[in-house]
Design a protein around this nucleic acid. Structure first.
Lengths: 206, 206
DNA sequence: ATCATATTCAATAAATATATTGAATTATTG
DNA sequence: CAATAATTCAATATATTTATTGAATATGAT
C-alpha cells in the first residue's frame, strides 16, 4: 500500500534527520552529510529512497544536486508528527524539556507575542542557525547570528531592546545555549517557542 | 530515536489496517483477524508491536483482550496522515476517487451540510458499517443499517426524507455501494464526505 | 480439578533494510 | 579533450522485519 511505503520512507532515524535538515531549506548532498554524520554514499542512498517515495525533490545546478522537501504540505505533515512526538512520546518529551528551563513562560516567547513585539519595534530577533540556513529562509526581521559567531565575537547588542533567539525546531538546543550565554551577560533575552519552519507554515496558513 | 520507532510501528500495511479497524472502536484479537485477513498469531504479534510502541492499549475482560487506540491524540494524528495520503499520494488519490462518482458535490454531503440537515430534521442518516462498529460508537442521530441488511431485506425508508450514508473512512467503499443501491430504488441519497472517526475528532475539537 | 477457549510466546525461514566499499557517471573547468 | 569534483550506482555483509508453525499461558465453565 502506498501509505505504508511513504511512512517507511520517513521512519528511519537518518532520514528523519535529513528531513529536519531540509526543513530549514534546500541542501546539496555535502550539506546533508555535514548535518547528519552519515558517509557520502550512505546519504546519497537515503536521499534516493526519499526521492522515490516523494518525500524530497531535486534541482541540479552545475556539479551540485540540491535536495529539498517535496512540498509545503509535506512540511506541514512532518510538523504535525513532530508536535505529536514532543507532546505524547514520553521519551522525547523528557529529552526536549531536559535542561530547558527556557521553556517556561518566563523564558520563552510565543509567535503571538513575537508579532506584538515586532510591531512595537522593541525586539532584536536572533537567528542562531548556520548562515546558509538563514540565507535560504528566515523569519522576517531576524538577523543572522550563528552560534559560533555569537560565542567568538560576543557581539554587543543595544541593552535597551529585548532579545529573542530561535533555531531549527524542538530538538535544536542552539537557541537555549544562546539564551544562557546572553543572559549571563546581562541581556533581557528569551527563546522563541517555535522555529523557522513552524513560522513558515504559519505564514502559509494565514 | 523514539520518533522513528513510533513511525516504524505504524508503517506496515497490516498494522495500518489494524489502526483503521480500531479507529471504529475497540476490538478483540478475533475481531482484528476478521477485519484484516491475518492469521491469529500474526495479528497478535503485530498487536504486541503496536502495544510496545504506544499505538494501542489493552483491556482484559474474561477470555478476551480488547485492543483500542492509545488516545484521541493518536487518532487525530492518524487522520492527519491519512488526509495527506489521500490528497498528496497520487496512487491513493486515484484509488479513492476510482469509481466514486459519489465524491462530486452532487452526491456528497459535508459535515456542515449534515449538521444543517439534522437541525432541520429532514435527513435519515445511515451507518452502513457492521453492527458492532455502530454499537461501539456512531454519529449522533444515525441508524444502523449494515450493508448485508440493506441488501438482503431492502428496507423501506420514507421517500420524502433525504438519505445520507457513511462508513469507515476514505478507503471504505460501503457507503458508495449503499448510495448506488438506494439511488436505483429512487431514493434521494448522498454519501457523507467524512466518516465516524472524523466526526469523533470534530466533536472533541469543538 | 478438568476442559475448552482466547491469546501469547518461541523458534524458524524468508524477505527486506542498512552501511560500507569502491567503481561508474555526470558536468565543469582549464 | 583531459582533469577534477559531486554524485550515483553495484556488490556485499550484517541486521532487522515479517509470516508461519506449534507449543505455552491464562481465564472461565463444567
Amino acid at each position: 500500500m502506498g501509505l505504508s511505503k511513504m511512512l517507511k520512507a520517513i521512519s528511519n532515524p537518518n532520514r528523519l534527520e535529513v528531513i529536519e535538515a531540509l526543513s530549514q531549506g534546500e541542501k546539496n548532498v555535502e550539506g546533508i552529510v555535514q548535518a547528519t554524520d552519515m558517509t557520502f554514499a550512505n546519504a546519497s542512498q537515503h536521499l534516493q529512497v526519499m526521492k522515490n517515495n516523494n518525500i524530497v525533490k531535486t534541482r541540479k545546478d552545475g556539479h551540485y544536486v540540491y535536495y529539498s522537501l517535496v512540498s509545503d504540505e509535506f512540511l506541514a505533515l512532518h510538523q504535525h508528527i513532530t508536535k505529536y512526538a514532543v507532546k505524547e512520546i514520553a521519551e522525547l518529551a523528557r529529552m526536549v524539556n531536559w535542561q530547558r528551563e527556557a521553556s517556561d513562560s518566563q523564558n520563552s516567547v510565543s509567535f503571538e507575542e513575537l508579532e506584538q513585539m515586532i510591531t512595537e519595534q522593541n525586539v532584536l530577533l536572533l537567528d542562531v542557525r548556520p548562515a546558509e540556513e538563514f540565507e535560504s529562509g528566515h523569519i522576517t526581521g531576524a538577523i543572522s547570528i550563528p552560534m559560533d559567531v555569537l560565542i567568538s565575537s560576543l557581539k554587543d547588542f543595544a541593552k535597551d531592546s529585548e532579545l529573542v533567539a530561535y533555531c531549527r525546531g524542538p530538538f535544536c538546543m542552539l537557541a537555549d545555549e544562546a539564551v544562557k550565554l546572553l543572559k549571563d551577560l546581562g541581556y533581557r533575552v528569551r527563546r522563541l517557542d517555535g522555529s523557522y519552519p513552524e513560522w513558515k507554515i504559519r505564514q502559509l496558513q494565514s
